[in-house]
Protein backbone atom coordinates (compact mmCIF):
# COMPACT_ATOMS: atom_id res chain seq x y z
CA UNK A 1 0.00 0.00 0.00
CA UNK A 2 1.46 3.32 -1.07
CA UNK A 3 0.76 6.03 1.47
CA UNK A 4 0.05 9.61 0.44
CA UNK A 5 -1.10 12.67 2.32
CA UNK A 6 -3.04 15.73 1.25
CA UNK A 7 -4.15 18.75 3.26
CA UNK A 8 -6.45 21.74 3.00
CA UNK A 9 -7.51 24.58 5.25
CA UNK A 10 -10.65 23.13 6.78
CA UNK A 11 -9.98 19.48 6.04
CA UNK A 12 -13.55 19.05 4.79
CA UNK A 13 -13.83 19.72 1.08
CA UNK A 14 -10.74 20.07 -1.07
CA UNK A 15 -8.55 17.49 0.63
CA UNK A 16 -11.33 14.91 0.62
CA UNK A 17 -11.96 15.47 -3.05
CA UNK A 18 -8.25 14.95 -3.80
CA UNK A 19 -8.25 11.82 -1.65
CA UNK A 20 -11.24 10.27 -3.41
CA UNK A 21 -10.01 11.19 -6.88
CA UNK A 22 -6.42 10.00 -6.44
CA UNK A 23 -7.42 6.74 -4.77
CA UNK A 24 -9.92 5.97 -7.54
CA UNK A 25 -7.61 6.86 -10.42
CA UNK A 26 -4.57 5.06 -9.04
CA UNK A 27 -6.64 1.95 -8.42
CA UNK A 28 -7.70 2.11 -12.05
CA UNK A 29 -4.03 2.28 -13.00
CA UNK A 30 -3.29 -0.80 -10.91
CA UNK A 31 -1.77 0.71 -7.76
CA UNK A 32 -2.79 0.18 -4.17
CA UNK A 33 -2.88 3.68 -2.79
CA UNK A 34 -4.19 5.19 0.41
CA UNK A 35 -4.47 8.96 0.71
CA UNK A 36 -5.03 10.63 4.05
CA UNK A 37 -6.80 14.02 4.10
CA UNK A 38 -5.99 16.36 6.98
CA UNK A 39 -6.03 20.04 7.88
CA UNK A 40 -2.95 22.07 6.96
CA UNK A 41 -2.51 23.11 10.59
CA UNK A 42 -2.03 19.45 11.47
CA UNK A 43 0.85 19.00 9.04
CA UNK A 44 4.07 18.25 10.91
CA UNK A 45 6.90 15.75 10.85
CA UNK A 46 4.76 13.42 12.97
CA UNK A 47 1.77 13.36 10.57
CA UNK A 48 4.20 13.03 7.64
CA UNK A 49 5.64 9.83 9.12
CA UNK A 50 5.34 6.95 6.68
CA UNK A 51 4.01 9.20 3.94
CA UNK A 52 5.58 8.35 0.57
CA UNK A 53 4.13 11.14 -1.57
CA UNK A 54 2.84 14.51 -0.37
CA UNK A 55 0.00 16.03 -2.42
CA UNK A 56 -0.32 19.71 -1.46
CA UNK A 57 -3.22 21.70 -2.90
CA UNK A 58 -2.25 25.29 -2.32
CA UNK A 59 1.48 25.72 -1.90
CA UNK A 60 1.36 25.78 1.90
CA UNK A 61 4.16 27.42 3.88
CA UNK A 62 5.45 24.72 6.16
CA UNK A 63 7.77 25.19 9.08
CA UNK A 64 9.60 21.94 8.35
CA UNK A 65 11.23 20.30 5.36
CA UNK A 66 9.22 17.79 3.41
CA UNK A 67 11.61 14.98 2.56
CA UNK A 68 9.32 12.95 0.29
CA UNK A 69 8.29 13.74 -3.28
CA UNK A 70 5.75 16.57 -3.48
CA UNK A 71 3.20 16.80 -6.28
CA UNK A 72 0.90 19.79 -6.62
CA UNK A 73 -2.60 18.29 -6.78
CA UNK A 74 -4.78 21.42 -6.90
CA UNK A 75 -5.66 20.99 -10.58
CA UNK A 76 -7.63 17.83 -9.70
CA UNK A 77 -10.21 20.02 -7.96
CA UNK A 78 -11.53 21.22 -11.31
CA UNK A 79 -12.74 17.72 -12.11
CA UNK A 80 -11.79 18.16 -15.74
CA UNK A 81 -9.93 15.15 -17.10
CA UNK A 82 -7.56 17.32 -19.13
CA UNK A 83 -6.49 19.21 -16.02
CA UNK A 84 -6.27 16.21 -13.73
CA UNK A 85 -4.43 13.81 -16.04
CA UNK A 86 -1.00 15.49 -15.75
CA UNK A 87 -1.23 15.26 -11.96
CA UNK A 88 -2.09 11.55 -12.08
CA UNK A 89 0.72 10.97 -14.58
CA UNK A 90 3.19 12.68 -12.26
CA UNK A 91 2.02 10.53 -9.35
CA UNK A 92 2.41 7.38 -11.43
CA UNK A 93 5.88 8.46 -12.62
CA UNK A 94 6.93 9.13 -9.05
CA UNK A 95 5.66 5.73 -7.92
CA UNK A 96 7.61 4.03 -10.70
CA UNK A 97 10.79 6.07 -10.35
CA UNK A 98 10.97 5.53 -6.61
CA UNK A 99 9.78 1.92 -6.78
CA UNK A 100 7.09 2.65 -4.22
CA UNK A 101 4.84 -0.13 -3.04
Amino acid sequence: MIKMLTACGAGVNSSHQIKDAVEAEMKKRGYQVSVEAIQIKDLNPETMKGVQIFLPINKPDLSFDVTVPEIDAGAILYRMPAMAAPVYDKIEDTIKKNHLS
Binding site: H16, Q17, D20, L77
Partner: peptide, 9 residues
Protein backbone atom coordinates in the same frame (compact mmCIF):
# COMPACT_ATOMS: atom_id res chain seq x y z
CA UNK B 1 -16.72 15.56 5.57
CA UNK B 2 -16.58 11.77 5.35
CA UNK B 3 -20.18 11.22 4.35
CA UNK B 4 -21.82 10.76 0.98
CA UNK B 5 -20.46 12.53 -2.02
CA UNK B 6 -18.14 15.48 -2.01
CA UNK B 7 -19.91 18.86 -2.17
CA UNK B 8 -17.04 20.65 -3.87
CA UNK B 9 -16.90 17.89 -6.49
Amino acid sequence: PEGQSNVLA
